[in-house]
């Protein structure tokens, strides 16, 4: 119970208020989000689940500042990214967000180490090599793969490199879009364990979008979406009781 009280006292990292998103397809308007409200606290691990087309990815892209909402508000650490300029939104994304995608999205022309270092360089707007890329690859068990190109790595290894790239700049929020969607069960478990460790050991706030029940079960809290709305908010009781996961 004390754990639960602890959670409520933590500050909100993400606040979403009456979020609406309408796509225009020719003359047609297609609503993707119809008034979504929720918040995510610092150090929370939230999974957004729901059927395809329910607006999960749109929600993630909006939180990540890749899209601008039609209406409503998104606050990232108290700053509204829905009302700031494109430049300011890019700056927030650069400094405070980390993305992990289903298809890994590593740059094929760069090695694992260079992919990670690139994120660091973009954040610093310049080149510097402080060894953090090697350190994090070592931590993720990829020390022998540093000089490998993405196509020389397995799917699981690529996703681990993608996670390393996403967290290298210590973002406030890690946004993961179906991170296990392209992986077999063994690699999925490995990636989920990594995310779990990042959350529990380093207090990394994570929002994950998934179809995978195992991935959803890893989260502290589930948000179920349907037809652009939130259907259910479920506190993962396993986490609420403060028990250690395997």
């Amino acid at each position: 119970m004390s754990e639960m009280i602890g959670i409520t006292r933590r500050k909100d990292v993400v606040v979403v208020e009456d979020l609406q998103m309408v796509y225009r397809v020719g003359k047609m308007e297609v609503p993707a989000l119809r008034g979504v409200d929720f918040s995510v606290k610092e150090g929370e691990f939230v999974a957004v689940i729901g059927p395809s087309g329910c607006g999960k990815s749109t929600l993630l892209h909006l939180i990540g500042g890749l899209l601008k909402p039609t209406s409503g508000r998104i606050l990232i650490e108290g700053v509204s990214i829905s009302s700031v300029s494109d430049v300011a939104r890019t700056e927030i994304r650069r400094q405070r967000m980390g993305f992990v995608f289903q298809s890994y999205n590593l740059l094929n022309t760069l090695t694992a180490k260079e992919n990670i270092a690139l994120a660091k360089r973009i954040q610093g707007n310049g080149y510097y090599e402080d060894g953090s890329a090697q350190k994090i690859l070592r931590m993720l068990g990829l020390e022998n793969k540093m000089e490998h190109k993405p196509w020389e790595l397995s799917g699981g290894e690529q996703q681990r490199v993608a996670i390393a790239r996403a967290v290298i700049n210590r973002p406030a929020i890690l946004l993961a879009d179906e991170p296990t969607g392209s992986l077999d069960s063994e690699n999925s478990r490995m990636v989920l364990n990594m995310l779990r460790e990042l959350n529990s050991d380093y207090g990394q706030t994570i929002i994950i979008i998934t179809h995978d029940p195992e991935a959803a079960a890893t989260a502290d809290r589930l948000i179920e979406m349907r037809d652009g709305k939130i259907l259910n908010r479920v506190q993962n009781m396993f986490y609420a009781m403060g028990e250690k996961r395997s």
């Binding site: 890749l66 494109d86 430049v87 890019t90 994304r93 650069r94 967000m97 993305f99 999205n105």
Partner: peptide, 16 residues
């Protein structure tokens, strides 16, 4: 195009 999308998701600015 995809690479440019990746760079943007990493926070690369337009000027970058």
């Amino acid at each position: 195009t995809r690479e440019i999308g990746i760079l943007k998701s990493l926070g690369a600015s337009k000027s970058y």
